[in-house]
Amino acid sequence: MNLDELSDAELVQRFKSGDSLAFDAIVRRFQDRVFRLASVWLHDSQHAGDVSQEVFLRAFKGLRGFRFRAAPFTWLYRVTRNVCNEFNRRRVPEALEQEPIDYENLPDAQVFHRETARQVRELVDVLPERQREVVLLRIFEELSVKETARAMGCREGTVKALLHKANQNLRGKLDNSGMA
Protein backbone atom coordinates (compact mmCIF):
# COMPACT_ATOMS: atom_id res chain seq x y z
CA MET A 1 0.00 0.00 0.00
CA ASN A 2 1.26 3.47 -0.87
CA LEU A 3 2.14 5.33 2.31
CA ASP A 4 0.80 8.57 0.88
CA GLU A 5 -2.67 7.03 0.78
CA LEU A 6 -2.73 6.40 4.51
CA SER A 7 -4.41 8.82 6.89
CA ASP A 8 -2.26 10.88 9.24
CA ALA A 9 -3.00 8.59 12.18
CA GLU A 10 -2.31 5.44 10.14
CA LEU A 11 0.97 6.87 8.96
CA VAL A 12 2.06 7.64 12.50
CA GLN A 13 0.98 4.17 13.56
CA ARG A 14 3.14 2.69 10.82
CA PHE A 15 6.07 4.74 12.01
CA LYS A 16 5.50 3.61 15.59
CA SER A 17 5.54 0.03 14.39
CA GLY A 18 9.05 0.53 13.09
CA ASP A 19 8.51 1.44 9.46
CA SER A 20 11.31 3.95 8.80
CA LEU A 21 9.87 4.87 5.41
CA ALA A 22 6.75 6.04 7.20
CA PHE A 23 8.70 8.86 8.84
CA ASP A 24 9.93 10.04 5.46
CA ALA A 25 6.30 10.12 4.36
CA ILE A 26 5.40 12.10 7.49
CA VAL A 27 8.01 14.72 6.68
CA ARG A 28 6.85 14.87 3.08
CA ARG A 29 3.24 15.32 4.15
CA PHE A 30 3.70 18.01 6.79
CA GLN A 31 6.84 19.87 5.80
CA ASP A 32 5.05 22.65 3.88
CA ARG A 33 2.65 23.40 6.71
CA VAL A 34 5.37 23.35 9.33
CA PHE A 35 7.57 25.55 7.18
CA ARG A 36 4.78 28.08 6.53
CA LEU A 37 3.85 28.32 10.18
CA ALA A 38 7.47 28.72 11.17
CA SER A 39 7.92 31.46 8.58
CA VAL A 40 5.15 33.49 10.19
CA TRP A 41 5.85 32.73 13.85
CA LEU A 42 9.53 33.51 13.65
CA HIS A 43 10.74 37.07 13.89
CA ASP A 44 13.03 36.27 10.99
CA SER A 45 11.59 33.89 8.42
CA GLN A 46 14.99 33.06 6.92
CA HIS A 47 15.44 30.62 9.81
CA ALA A 48 12.25 28.75 8.99
CA GLY A 49 14.32 25.95 7.46
CA ASP A 50 16.36 25.48 10.64
CA VAL A 51 13.25 25.49 12.78
CA SER A 52 11.46 23.04 10.50
CA GLN A 53 14.41 20.68 10.69
CA GLU A 54 14.36 20.87 14.48
CA VAL A 55 10.62 20.23 14.55
CA PHE A 56 10.99 17.01 12.60
CA LEU A 57 13.96 15.86 14.64
CA ARG A 58 11.83 16.24 17.75
CA ALA A 59 8.94 14.56 15.98
CA PHE A 60 11.11 11.54 15.28
CA LYS A 61 11.57 11.04 19.01
CA GLY A 62 8.21 12.28 20.17
CA LEU A 63 5.96 10.40 17.76
CA ARG A 64 7.25 7.08 19.07
CA GLY A 65 5.25 7.70 22.20
CA PHE A 66 2.31 9.33 20.47
CA ARG A 67 -0.97 8.29 22.06
CA PHE A 68 -3.36 9.65 19.45
CA ARG A 69 -5.17 11.85 21.93
CA ALA A 70 -5.00 14.57 19.30
CA ALA A 71 -4.49 14.61 15.54
CA PRO A 72 -0.84 14.27 14.50
CA PHE A 73 -0.82 17.70 12.91
CA THR A 74 -2.14 19.25 16.12
CA TRP A 75 0.82 17.77 17.94
CA LEU A 76 3.23 18.92 15.22
CA TYR A 77 1.76 22.39 15.33
CA ARG A 78 2.43 22.67 19.06
CA VAL A 79 5.98 21.48 18.58
CA THR A 80 6.42 24.08 15.85
CA ARG A 81 5.07 26.81 18.11
CA ASN A 82 7.38 25.78 20.94
CA VAL A 83 10.46 25.63 18.75
CA CYS A 84 9.63 29.03 17.22
CA ASN A 85 9.16 30.56 20.66
CA GLU A 86 12.48 29.12 21.82
CA PHE A 87 14.15 30.40 18.70
CA ASN A 88 12.66 33.87 19.07
CA ARG A 89 13.69 34.04 22.71
CA ARG A 90 17.26 33.06 21.87
CA ARG A 91 17.64 35.54 19.08
CA VAL A 92 17.21 39.22 19.78
CA PRO A 93 15.08 40.81 17.08
CA GLU A 94 17.84 42.32 15.03
CA ALA A 95 17.91 45.62 13.25
CA LEU A 96 17.89 43.59 10.03
CA GLU A 97 14.26 42.92 10.63
CA GLN A 98 13.54 46.63 10.17
CA GLU A 99 15.50 46.85 6.99
CA PRO A 100 13.94 45.93 3.68
CA ILE A 101 14.87 42.44 2.51
CA ASP A 102 17.42 42.41 -0.25
CA TYR A 103 15.61 40.36 -2.87
CA GLU A 104 18.08 40.87 -5.67
CA ASN A 105 20.32 37.99 -4.77
CA LEU A 106 17.59 35.56 -3.74
CA PRO A 107 15.93 32.92 -5.89
CA ASP A 108 12.32 33.70 -6.86
CA ALA A 109 10.86 31.05 -4.57
CA GLN A 110 12.65 32.50 -1.59
CA VAL A 111 11.59 36.01 -2.52
CA PHE A 112 8.00 34.88 -2.71
CA HIS A 113 8.23 32.98 0.56
CA ARG A 114 9.83 35.72 2.57
CA GLU A 115 7.70 38.52 1.20
CA THR A 116 4.46 36.59 1.76
CA ALA A 117 5.51 35.62 5.25
CA ARG A 118 6.33 39.26 5.97
CA GLN A 119 2.90 40.40 4.79
CA VAL A 120 1.09 37.77 6.85
CA ARG A 121 3.15 38.69 9.88
CA GLU A 122 2.38 42.36 9.37
CA LEU A 123 -1.32 41.56 9.22
CA VAL A 124 -1.51 39.40 12.33
CA ASP A 125 1.08 41.20 14.45
CA VAL A 126 -1.54 43.80 15.40
CA LEU A 127 -3.48 41.03 17.14
CA PRO A 128 -2.94 39.58 20.61
CA GLU A 129 -1.26 36.20 20.56
CA ARG A 130 -4.35 34.01 20.88
CA GLN A 131 -6.22 35.89 18.18
CA ARG A 132 -3.16 35.70 15.99
CA GLU A 133 -3.04 31.97 16.49
CA VAL A 134 -6.68 31.44 15.66
CA VAL A 135 -6.44 33.53 12.49
CA LEU A 136 -3.40 31.56 11.30
CA LEU A 137 -4.95 28.19 11.98
CA ARG A 138 -8.56 28.84 11.04
CA ILE A 139 -8.17 31.28 8.18
CA PHE A 140 -4.74 30.68 6.72
CA GLU A 141 -4.30 26.98 7.45
CA GLU A 142 -8.03 26.33 6.94
CA LEU A 143 -8.40 24.05 9.92
CA SER A 144 -11.93 23.37 11.13
CA VAL A 145 -13.15 25.00 14.32
CA LYS A 146 -12.77 21.68 16.09
CA GLU A 147 -9.21 21.14 14.83
CA THR A 148 -8.29 24.72 15.70
CA ALA A 149 -9.67 24.26 19.21
CA ARG A 150 -7.66 21.07 19.64
CA ALA A 151 -4.48 22.70 18.37
CA MET A 152 -4.92 25.65 20.70
CA GLY A 153 -6.07 23.57 23.63
CA CYS A 154 -9.33 25.45 24.07
CA ARG A 155 -13.03 24.99 23.43
CA GLU A 156 -14.72 25.55 20.11
CA GLY A 157 -16.70 28.44 21.54
CA THR A 158 -13.43 30.11 22.49
CA VAL A 159 -12.18 29.76 18.93
CA LYS A 160 -15.28 31.47 17.60
CA ALA A 161 -15.05 34.24 20.17
CA LEU A 162 -11.38 34.83 19.41
CA LEU A 163 -12.10 34.91 15.71
CA HIS A 164 -14.84 37.46 16.23
CA LYS A 165 -12.51 39.70 18.23
CA ALA A 166 -9.75 39.26 15.65
CA ASN A 167 -12.20 40.30 12.97
CA GLN A 168 -13.02 43.44 14.91
CA ASN A 169 -9.35 44.20 15.45
CA LEU A 170 -8.69 43.73 11.76
CA ARG A 171 -11.64 46.00 11.08
CA GLY A 172 -13.88 43.44 9.49
CA LYS A 173 -11.37 42.10 7.00
CA LEU A 174 -12.07 38.47 7.81
CA ASP A 175 -15.01 36.58 6.44
CA ASN A 176 -17.85 36.34 8.94
CA SER A 177 -18.61 32.84 7.77
CA GLY A 178 -15.32 31.77 9.32
CA MET A 179 -16.94 32.21 12.73
CA ALA A 180 -19.78 29.77 12.05
Binding site: D24, V27, R28, Q31, D32, V34, F35, R36, S39, V40, G49, S52, Q53, F56, L57, F60, A109, F112, H113, T116, A117, Q119, V120, L123, I139, F140, E142, K173, L174, D175
Partner: peptide
Protein backbone atom coordinates in the same frame (compact mmCIF):
# COMPACT_ATOMS: atom_id res chain seq x y z
CA UNK B 1 -6.59 41.29 -0.17
CA UNK B 2 -6.86 38.84 2.73
CA UNK B 3 -8.04 36.13 0.38
CA UNK B 4 -5.14 36.79 -1.94
CA UNK B 5 -2.73 36.81 0.95
CA UNK B 6 -4.14 33.52 2.11
CA UNK B 7 -3.67 31.96 -1.31
CA UNK B 8 -0.10 33.22 -1.43
CA UNK B 9 0.52 31.87 2.03
CA UNK B 10 -0.72 28.42 1.12
CA UNK B 11 1.55 28.36 -1.89
CA UNK B 12 4.63 28.61 0.34
CA UNK B 13 6.56 25.38 0.11
CA UNK B 14 9.31 23.99 2.20
CA UNK B 15 12.70 24.03 0.49
CA UNK B 16 13.45 20.78 -1.36
CA UNK B 17 16.53 20.11 0.75
CA UNK B 18 14.56 20.02 4.02
CA UNK B 19 14.01 16.25 3.93
CA UNK B 20 17.69 15.67 3.29
CA UNK B 21 18.53 17.94 6.20
CA UNK B 22 16.19 16.03 8.47
Amino acid sequence: DIEQLKQNYRRIEAPPELRARV
